[in-house]
Amino acid sequence: MRRFLVLCATITLVASCGRGGGEEGGRLPAAPVGVTAEAGSATSVHVMWNAVGPGVEAYEVYRGTTKVKEVPGSAHMVDVTRLRPSTVYVFTVRARDADGRIGPSSGEVRATTPAAVTADGRAPTAPGHPKGRAIGSRAVQLSWSAASDDRDVTSYDIHQGGTKIHSVGGNQTAAVVTGLRPGTRYSFTVRARDAADNVSPASTAVRLTTAPAADSGGGTAPGRFRAVTRLADDGAYYLDLSWVPPRADGAVTEYQVHLDGRPATSLVFGGSPPSDRASYSFYVGRDAGVTHRVRIRARLPDGTWGGFSPERAVTTGGSGP
């Protein structure tokens, strides 16, 4: 069974909850979640995390107990360089607010750099056949065919225009880019990198236009959303929800449930969040014959909310679609 933390909820399930920030009530920024680390070459590691949210001035990245990188609050990934080959490294991330207050450390993540390759001056070939599609107004999905190398491809770098915005492992030939602007035309290219830090030529460009702002963002919504009511042994009714997490590069750990048009509760999955099917159950009262409308959305790794799932109508004592 998956473990999760309910951020806030009330018996009547009508109270909205927000993320702990460094601005309200003097609270420190929350610890970043969804932290991952993957070797980009024999001397670099790509560290990525879920954005904490508004009020974060910067993120500090630590290798062991040593601070090695600092990025602005608008970023949630960084390359840590000048590392040693064939070495295990431990990374954590902390958020800092505008008043200089630093929140707690994220959980530790580990990455092992590959062995160094001597006298390797040959770069990989360019990734082939890149293509993509817009996912609503704020995200795109990219894919490409694998590059070849005389040794091995260690990672792929995704560029937006002339700026590197993301990296994925060498065994991955697809990526989801979020945090884009509605109704905007973008150009993306992909480059392959080997263990010796040789970088391939750029792939041909993929040009995509995100949907207008009025778009519902359905492409970033949880999929296959189901809702049914259940009568417990104590005579109380519960709403059982299940869904498939939206696709995104990075862990999707937080969800918000809306009941009857209002935020009802938020939850954060602890440990390893579900990647296939997630579920959650909460109390909705003791009266039979009451109809509720429910929908759910996910907070994406870049800190923004994705689109809502389709709304389901369920009646206590009955079942939803």
Rank of each mutant, 00 (worst) to 15 (best):
I165G: 04
I165D: 09
Y238A: 10
D194G: 11
P85E: 06
G136Q: 09
G306F: 07
R101W: 05
A51N: 15
Y255R: 06
M1A: 13
L241W: 02
V244S: 04
E254N: 13
R96E: 08
D150Q: 14
G100I: 05
V14S: 10
T154G: 05
E38P: 00
T10W: 12
R151H: 15
S275C: 05
A98R: 12
V206K: 01
D149Q: 09
V33Q: 05
I11M: 06
E24R: 15
V61P: 09
K164V: 02
P85D: 02
G270R: 13
S44P: 00
Q172R: 15
P127Y: 07
R207T: 15
P274Y: 06
V35S: 01
V314L: 09
T178Y: 04
T43A: 13
G303R: 06
V35H: 07
L28Y: 04
H159V: 12
A95Q: 00
E57K: 12
D249W: 01
S266N: 11
Y237E: 06
A298K: 07
G307S: 03
T209F: 09
V109Y: 08
V206S: 05
A147D: 01
P245Q: 02
A251V: 03
S242C: 13
S105A: 15
P127N: 14
A116T: 10
G317D: 02
R101P: 11
V78L: 00
A58M: 05
G55V: 03
Y156V: 00
S187F: 10
H129V: 04
R110E: 11
V284K: 07
K67R: 14
T291F: 05
A298F: 09
A30Q: 04
P124Y: 04
T253G: 13
